[in-house]
Simulated scan of single mutants.
Amino acid sequence: MFITFSEEKLRTFTYDVFKKMGCSNEHATLATDVLVRSDLRGIDSHGVARLSGYYRLWEKNRINATPNIRIIHETPTTATVDGDAGLGLVVAPFAMKVAIEKAEKYGSGWVSVKNSNHFGIAGYHALMAVEKDMIGISMTNASPLVAPTYANERLLGTNPMCYAFPAGKYPAVVVDMATAAAANGKLEIAQRANAEIPDGWVQDKDGNGSTNPNELKAGGSLLPLGSDKDHGSHKGYGLGATVDILSAVLSGANYGPWVPPFVAFLEPDPNPVGEGIGHFLGAMRVDGFRPAQDFKNHLDNWIGRFKNAKTVDENKQVIIPGEPEYQFELTRKTSGIPLINAVVEDLNNLAKKIDVEPLLIP
Protein backbone atom coordinates (compact mmCIF):
# COMPACT_ATOMS: atom_id res chain seq x y z
CA MET A 1 0.00 0.00 0.00
CA PHE A 2 2.96 2.32 0.67
CA ILE A 3 6.19 2.83 -1.23
CA THR A 4 9.02 4.63 0.56
CA PHE A 5 11.25 7.16 -1.19
CA SER A 6 14.31 9.05 -0.06
CA GLU A 7 13.99 12.77 0.55
CA GLU A 8 16.53 13.37 -2.22
CA LYS A 9 14.46 11.37 -4.75
CA LEU A 10 11.30 13.33 -4.00
CA ARG A 11 13.16 16.63 -4.13
CA THR A 12 14.65 15.82 -7.53
CA PHE A 13 11.32 14.70 -8.97
CA THR A 14 9.38 17.68 -7.60
CA TYR A 15 12.02 20.17 -8.77
CA ASP A 16 11.91 18.68 -12.28
CA VAL A 17 8.12 19.12 -12.43
CA PHE A 18 8.29 22.76 -11.36
CA LYS A 19 11.02 23.39 -13.92
CA LYS A 20 8.77 21.89 -16.61
CA MET A 21 6.19 24.49 -15.59
CA GLY A 22 8.72 27.19 -16.39
CA CYS A 23 9.73 28.13 -12.84
CA SER A 24 13.16 29.62 -12.26
CA ASN A 25 15.77 27.55 -10.45
CA GLU A 26 15.19 29.62 -7.30
CA HIS A 27 11.41 29.28 -7.38
CA ALA A 28 11.49 25.58 -8.27
CA THR A 29 13.86 24.92 -5.37
CA LEU A 30 11.73 26.89 -2.91
CA ALA A 31 8.43 25.34 -4.02
CA THR A 32 10.01 21.90 -3.78
CA ASP A 33 11.23 22.61 -0.27
CA VAL A 34 7.73 23.61 0.91
CA LEU A 35 6.12 20.44 -0.45
CA VAL A 36 8.81 17.99 0.67
CA ARG A 37 8.98 19.60 4.11
CA SER A 38 5.28 18.86 4.45
CA ASP A 39 5.87 15.18 3.72
CA LEU A 40 8.84 15.10 6.09
CA ARG A 41 6.64 16.53 8.84
CA GLY A 42 4.01 13.86 8.25
CA ILE A 43 1.45 16.20 6.68
CA ASP A 44 1.03 13.97 3.63
CA SER A 45 -2.14 15.73 2.49
CA HIS A 46 -0.14 18.85 1.57
CA GLY A 47 3.07 17.33 0.23
CA VAL A 48 4.03 15.96 -3.18
CA ALA A 49 0.56 14.40 -3.41
CA ARG A 50 -0.56 17.92 -4.39
CA LEU A 51 1.99 18.27 -7.19
CA SER A 52 -0.32 17.16 -10.01
CA GLY A 53 -2.88 19.68 -8.80
CA TYR A 54 -0.42 22.56 -9.16
CA TYR A 55 0.55 21.36 -12.62
CA ARG A 56 -3.06 21.15 -13.78
CA LEU A 57 -3.74 24.69 -12.55
CA TRP A 58 -0.67 25.88 -14.46
CA GLU A 59 -1.99 24.17 -17.60
CA LYS A 60 -5.25 26.12 -17.15
CA ASN A 61 -3.24 29.38 -16.95
CA ARG A 62 -4.33 29.89 -13.36
CA ILE A 63 -0.76 29.76 -12.00
CA ASN A 64 1.93 32.10 -13.29
CA ALA A 65 5.27 30.28 -13.20
CA THR A 66 7.26 33.51 -13.60
CA PRO A 67 5.47 36.00 -11.33
CA ASN A 68 6.53 39.54 -10.56
CA ILE A 69 5.90 39.37 -6.81
CA ARG A 70 5.90 42.89 -5.41
CA ILE A 71 4.88 45.14 -2.53
CA ILE A 72 2.01 47.41 -3.58
CA HIS A 73 1.27 49.17 -0.27
CA GLU A 74 3.55 49.69 2.70
CA THR A 75 4.15 51.32 6.07
CA PRO A 76 7.16 50.74 8.35
CA THR A 77 5.49 47.70 9.98
CA THR A 78 2.92 46.56 7.40
CA ALA A 79 2.72 45.71 3.72
CA THR A 80 0.42 44.29 1.09
CA VAL A 81 1.97 41.99 -1.52
CA ASP A 82 0.63 41.21 -4.99
CA GLY A 83 1.62 37.64 -5.84
CA ASP A 84 0.95 38.05 -9.59
CA ALA A 85 -0.90 34.70 -9.66
CA GLY A 86 2.31 32.88 -8.68
CA LEU A 87 2.65 29.67 -6.73
CA GLY A 88 1.64 30.33 -3.14
CA LEU A 89 4.60 28.08 -2.28
CA VAL A 90 6.79 30.95 -3.50
CA VAL A 91 4.63 34.00 -2.78
CA ALA A 92 4.09 33.26 0.92
CA PRO A 93 7.82 32.88 1.76
CA PHE A 94 8.44 36.19 -0.05
CA ALA A 95 5.82 37.84 2.14
CA MET A 96 7.16 36.26 5.33
CA LYS A 97 10.64 37.54 4.52
CA VAL A 98 9.14 41.02 4.25
CA ALA A 99 7.44 40.56 7.63
CA ILE A 100 10.70 39.35 9.21
CA GLU A 101 12.69 42.27 7.78
CA LYS A 102 10.17 44.72 9.22
CA ALA A 103 10.23 42.94 12.56
CA GLU A 104 14.01 43.13 12.67
CA LYS A 105 13.78 46.94 12.33
CA TYR A 106 10.60 47.78 14.21
CA GLY A 107 9.76 44.81 16.46
CA SER A 108 6.97 43.33 14.36
CA GLY A 109 5.96 42.98 10.73
CA TRP A 110 2.58 42.18 9.18
CA VAL A 111 1.95 41.34 5.55
CA SER A 112 -1.28 40.64 3.71
CA VAL A 113 -1.18 38.97 0.30
CA LYS A 114 -3.52 38.97 -2.68
CA ASN A 115 -3.40 37.34 -6.11
CA SER A 116 -1.74 34.15 -4.88
CA ASN A 117 -2.47 30.41 -4.92
CA HIS A 118 -2.41 27.49 -2.47
CA PHE A 119 0.62 27.98 -0.19
CA GLY A 120 1.17 24.47 1.21
CA ILE A 121 1.41 24.00 4.97
CA ALA A 122 1.04 27.11 7.10
CA GLY A 123 3.73 25.83 9.46
CA TYR A 124 6.48 26.19 6.85
CA HIS A 125 6.06 29.95 6.68
CA ALA A 126 5.57 30.52 10.42
CA LEU A 127 8.74 28.53 11.18
CA MET A 128 10.75 30.95 9.05
CA ALA A 129 10.25 33.51 11.84
CA VAL A 130 11.18 31.01 14.57
CA GLU A 131 14.62 30.66 12.96
CA LYS A 132 15.13 34.36 13.81
CA ASP A 133 13.95 34.05 17.44
CA MET A 134 10.60 35.48 16.44
CA ILE A 135 7.02 34.35 16.86
CA GLY A 136 5.64 33.45 13.44
CA ILE A 137 2.03 33.66 12.31
CA SER A 138 0.68 32.49 8.97
CA MET A 139 -2.78 31.86 7.58
CA THR A 140 -4.55 31.60 4.26
CA ASN A 141 -8.04 31.39 2.92
CA ALA A 142 -8.95 28.55 0.58
CA SER A 143 -11.52 27.14 -1.82
CA PRO A 144 -15.06 27.31 -0.38
CA LEU A 145 -15.80 23.84 0.97
CA VAL A 146 -17.01 24.60 4.50
CA ALA A 147 -20.56 25.38 5.54
CA PRO A 148 -20.85 27.89 8.42
CA THR A 149 -22.81 26.83 11.49
CA TYR A 150 -26.48 26.27 10.57
CA ALA A 151 -25.72 26.63 6.83
CA ASN A 152 -26.02 24.15 4.00
CA GLU A 153 -23.91 26.18 1.61
CA ARG A 154 -20.16 26.29 1.08
CA LEU A 155 -18.97 29.75 2.04
CA LEU A 156 -15.55 29.29 3.68
CA GLY A 157 -12.39 27.33 3.00
CA THR A 158 -10.58 25.09 5.44
CA ASN A 159 -8.67 28.33 6.17
CA PRO A 160 -5.65 27.10 8.16
CA MET A 161 -3.81 29.19 10.72
CA CYS A 162 -0.45 28.65 12.36
CA TYR A 163 1.32 30.15 15.37
CA ALA A 164 4.94 29.12 15.94
CA PHE A 165 6.99 29.91 19.08
CA PRO A 166 10.76 29.40 19.52
CA ALA A 167 11.80 27.23 22.47
CA GLY A 168 15.21 26.42 23.95
CA LYS A 169 16.06 22.77 24.52
CA TYR A 170 12.74 21.63 23.05
CA PRO A 171 11.52 21.95 19.46
CA ALA A 172 9.38 24.98 18.62
CA VAL A 173 5.75 24.94 19.68
CA VAL A 174 3.81 24.93 16.40
CA VAL A 175 0.03 25.27 16.47
CA ASP A 176 -0.83 24.50 12.83
CA MET A 177 -4.43 23.62 12.09
CA ALA A 178 -7.32 23.94 9.71
CA THR A 179 -10.33 25.82 11.03
CA ALA A 180 -12.54 23.11 9.52
CA ALA A 181 -13.16 19.78 11.23
CA ALA A 182 -10.65 18.30 8.75
CA ALA A 183 -8.55 19.48 5.83
CA ASN A 184 -9.75 18.50 2.36
CA GLY A 185 -6.45 16.73 1.81
CA LYS A 186 -7.42 14.20 4.49
CA LEU A 187 -10.55 13.38 2.51
CA GLU A 188 -8.38 12.88 -0.57
CA ILE A 189 -6.18 10.45 1.35
CA ALA A 190 -9.26 8.50 2.48
CA GLN A 191 -10.56 8.43 -1.10
CA ARG A 192 -7.29 6.97 -2.36
CA ALA A 193 -7.31 4.40 0.44
CA ASN A 194 -11.01 3.61 -0.14
CA ALA A 195 -11.64 4.23 3.56
CA GLU A 196 -14.40 5.90 5.53
CA ILE A 197 -13.80 9.17 7.37
CA PRO A 198 -14.75 9.93 11.00
CA ASP A 199 -18.23 11.15 11.75
CA GLY A 200 -18.35 14.92 12.14
CA TRP A 201 -16.07 15.86 9.24
CA VAL A 202 -18.64 16.36 6.49
CA GLN A 203 -22.32 16.71 5.77
CA ASP A 204 -24.16 15.60 2.64
CA LYS A 205 -26.01 17.93 0.26
CA ASP A 206 -29.08 17.75 2.52
CA GLY A 207 -27.14 18.68 5.65
CA ASN A 208 -26.96 15.20 7.15
CA GLY A 209 -23.77 13.84 8.71
CA SER A 210 -21.78 11.35 6.62
CA THR A 211 -18.63 9.20 6.73
CA ASN A 212 -18.26 9.09 2.93
CA PRO A 213 -15.01 10.80 1.82
CA ASN A 214 -16.57 11.47 -1.61
CA GLU A 215 -19.37 13.59 -0.16
CA LEU A 216 -17.95 16.87 -1.46
CA LYS A 217 -18.12 15.59 -5.03
CA ALA A 218 -21.81 14.88 -4.49
CA GLY A 219 -22.60 18.42 -3.35
CA GLY A 220 -21.91 18.06 0.36
CA SER A 221 -19.67 20.27 2.49
CA LEU A 222 -17.03 20.16 5.16
CA LEU A 223 -18.02 21.17 8.68
CA PRO A 224 -16.28 23.82 10.79
CA LEU A 225 -13.95 22.84 13.61
CA GLY A 226 -16.30 21.55 16.29
CA SER A 227 -18.36 19.58 13.76
CA ASP A 228 -21.88 20.81 14.54
CA LYS A 229 -23.83 23.34 16.57
CA ASP A 230 -23.94 21.02 19.59
CA HIS A 231 -20.16 20.60 19.71
CA GLY A 232 -18.87 24.14 19.28
CA SER A 233 -18.86 24.55 15.49
CA HIS A 234 -19.52 28.27 15.94
CA LYS A 235 -15.96 28.54 17.29
CA GLY A 236 -14.46 26.93 14.19
CA TYR A 237 -16.71 29.10 12.04
CA GLY A 238 -15.45 32.19 13.86
CA LEU A 239 -11.82 31.19 13.41
CA GLY A 240 -12.37 30.46 9.71
CA ALA A 241 -14.06 33.83 9.28
CA THR A 242 -11.12 35.55 10.99
CA VAL A 243 -8.66 33.92 8.58
CA ASP A 244 -10.82 34.90 5.59
CA ILE A 245 -11.03 38.54 6.66
CA LEU A 246 -7.33 38.95 7.49
CA SER A 247 -6.15 37.04 4.41
CA ALA A 248 -8.50 38.45 1.80
CA VAL A 249 -10.81 41.27 2.84
CA LEU A 250 -7.72 43.08 4.17
CA SER A 251 -5.52 42.38 1.13
CA GLY A 252 -7.93 42.62 -1.80
CA ALA A 253 -7.99 38.89 -2.56
CA ASN A 254 -11.16 36.88 -3.15
CA TYR A 255 -13.04 35.85 -0.01
CA GLY A 256 -15.86 33.54 1.00
CA PRO A 257 -17.57 31.77 -1.92
CA TRP A 258 -15.54 33.72 -4.50
CA VAL A 259 -12.20 32.07 -3.62
CA PRO A 260 -11.00 30.19 -6.74
CA PRO A 261 -11.04 26.37 -6.44
CA PHE A 262 -7.79 24.42 -6.18
CA VAL A 263 -9.03 21.77 -8.61
CA ALA A 264 -8.54 22.57 -12.29
CA PHE A 265 -11.84 21.06 -13.47
CA LEU A 266 -13.78 23.77 -11.62
CA GLU A 267 -13.62 27.29 -12.99
CA PRO A 268 -13.26 30.38 -10.79
CA ASP A 269 -16.30 32.60 -10.29
CA PRO A 270 -16.76 34.73 -13.43
CA ASN A 271 -17.49 37.76 -11.22
CA PRO A 272 -14.70 37.77 -8.63
CA VAL A 273 -14.65 40.28 -5.78
CA GLY A 274 -10.85 40.34 -5.58
CA GLU A 275 -7.68 38.83 -7.00
CA GLY A 276 -6.64 35.21 -6.40
CA ILE A 277 -6.23 33.63 -2.98
CA GLY A 278 -5.14 35.65 0.06
CA HIS A 279 -2.65 35.06 2.87
CA PHE A 280 -1.73 36.85 6.08
CA LEU A 281 1.72 36.54 7.66
CA GLY A 282 3.30 38.08 10.70
CA ALA A 283 6.53 38.08 12.68
CA MET A 284 7.12 39.43 16.20
CA ARG A 285 10.52 39.73 17.84
CA VAL A 286 10.48 37.94 21.16
CA ASP A 287 13.02 40.43 22.52
CA GLY A 288 10.51 43.15 21.84
CA PHE A 289 8.74 41.85 24.95
CA ARG A 290 11.50 40.29 27.07
CA PRO A 291 14.99 38.85 26.49
CA ALA A 292 14.65 36.00 24.00
CA GLN A 293 16.53 33.50 26.13
CA ASP A 294 14.28 34.24 29.11
CA PHE A 295 11.23 33.54 27.00
CA LYS A 296 12.70 30.31 25.64
CA ASN A 297 13.67 29.14 29.11
CA HIS A 298 10.14 29.69 30.36
CA LEU A 299 8.62 28.07 27.28
CA ASP A 300 10.83 25.05 27.96
CA ASN A 301 9.42 25.03 31.49
CA TRP A 302 5.88 25.30 30.07
CA ILE A 303 6.52 22.40 27.69
CA GLY A 304 8.06 20.24 30.42
CA ARG A 305 5.14 20.80 32.77
CA PHE A 306 2.56 19.92 30.12
CA LYS A 307 4.49 16.83 29.02
CA ASN A 308 4.40 15.60 32.60
CA ALA A 309 0.71 16.28 33.14
CA LYS A 310 -1.35 13.59 34.83
CA THR A 311 -3.28 11.74 32.13
CA VAL A 312 -6.44 9.64 32.04
CA ASP A 313 -4.40 6.80 30.50
CA GLU A 314 -1.01 6.05 32.04
CA ASN A 315 0.24 4.88 28.65
CA LYS A 316 -0.50 8.26 27.07
CA GLN A 317 1.26 11.60 27.35
CA VAL A 318 0.05 15.12 26.64
CA ILE A 319 1.14 16.07 23.12
CA ILE A 320 2.83 19.42 22.65
CA PRO A 321 1.65 21.22 19.48
CA GLY A 322 4.18 20.54 16.71
CA GLU A 323 5.80 17.61 18.53
CA PRO A 324 4.42 14.83 16.29
CA GLU A 325 5.53 16.69 13.17
CA TYR A 326 9.00 17.19 14.62
CA GLN A 327 9.28 13.47 15.38
CA PHE A 328 8.07 12.60 11.88
CA GLU A 329 10.76 14.84 10.42
CA LEU A 330 13.52 13.19 12.45
CA THR A 331 12.34 9.73 11.39
CA ARG A 332 11.65 10.41 7.73
CA LYS A 333 14.96 12.21 7.24
CA THR A 334 16.66 8.86 7.77
CA SER A 335 14.07 6.19 6.94
CA GLY A 336 12.47 7.88 3.94
CA ILE A 337 9.04 9.23 3.03
CA PRO A 338 6.17 6.78 2.42
CA LEU A 339 3.66 7.52 -0.36
CA ILE A 340 0.52 5.50 -0.92
CA ASN A 341 0.36 3.59 -4.20
CA ALA A 342 -2.35 5.84 -5.64
CA VAL A 343 -0.15 8.92 -5.19
CA VAL A 344 2.85 7.17 -6.76
CA GLU A 345 0.71 6.13 -9.73
CA ASP A 346 -0.59 9.68 -10.14
CA LEU A 347 2.91 11.15 -10.04
CA ASN A 348 4.28 8.55 -12.46
CA ASN A 349 1.45 9.35 -14.88
CA LEU A 350 2.37 13.03 -14.61
CA ALA A 351 6.03 12.18 -15.24
CA LYS A 352 5.12 10.27 -18.39
CA LYS A 353 2.93 13.11 -19.61
CA ILE A 354 5.57 15.83 -19.22
CA ASP A 355 8.66 13.70 -19.92
CA VAL A 356 10.50 13.72 -16.60
CA GLU A 357 12.09 10.75 -14.88
CA PRO A 358 9.37 8.91 -12.93
CA LEU A 359 9.53 8.01 -9.27
CA LEU A 360 9.38 4.33 -10.21
CA ILE A 361 10.51 2.85 -13.49
CA PRO A 362 8.23 -0.10 -14.49
Rank of each mutant, 00 (worst) to 15 (best):
S138A: 11
V98Y: 02
S6Q: 09
D199M: 08
M128Q: 12
M139A: 13
K9H: 10
L360Q: 14
T179S: 03
H73E: 14
A103V: 07
T14K: 14
G22F: 02
G47E: 11
G274N: 08
D300P: 15
W201T: 13
A79H: 02
N115Y: 00
G219A: 07
S251C: 07
A85I: 05
G282F: 04
V173T: 10
G123Y: 01
L40Q: 15
L246H: 02
R332Y: 06
N254H: 02
R62E: 09
D33E: 15
V48Y: 04
P324R: 04
N341I: 01
A99H: 06
M284L: 15
F306R: 12
K186A: 05
D133V: 03
I197W: 11
N308D: 06
P338R: 04
G322M: 10
I43E: 10
L223S: 05
G123L: 06
G157Q: 07
E153Q: 13
Y255H: 13
G288V: 05
P160D: 01
V36M: 14
D82H: 07
L225H: 00
S247N: 06
V90L: 08
G168C: 05
D44I: 06
A85Y: 11
K97N: 14
L281H: 05
P362I: 00
T158D: 06
N184W: 01
M161L: 04
Y106G: 13
S116T: 02
V17G: 12
T242I: 09
R56N: 09
V173Y: 02
P257R: 03
I320C: 10
S52E: 13
L30M: 10
H27I: 11
T334I: 12
M139K: 08
Y255P: 12
Y170L: 13
A142T: 09
V175T: 03
S116Y: 01
G185S: 05
D346S: 03
K97L: 03
G288H: 14
E323C: 07
K105F: 00
G42T: 00
T242P: 05
A142G: 08
I303W: 11
E314W: 00
A164C: 03
L330T: 05
F265H: 14
Y237T: 04
T331S: 12
H125R: 04
Q317C: 08
A309E: 14
E59M: 10
N341C: 04
M128K: 04
A342I: 00
V17Y: 01
P261Q: 03
Y326C: 08
G278C: 07
A248K: 11
K217G: 07
N348M: 09
F265W: 12
K60L: 09
Y326R: 09
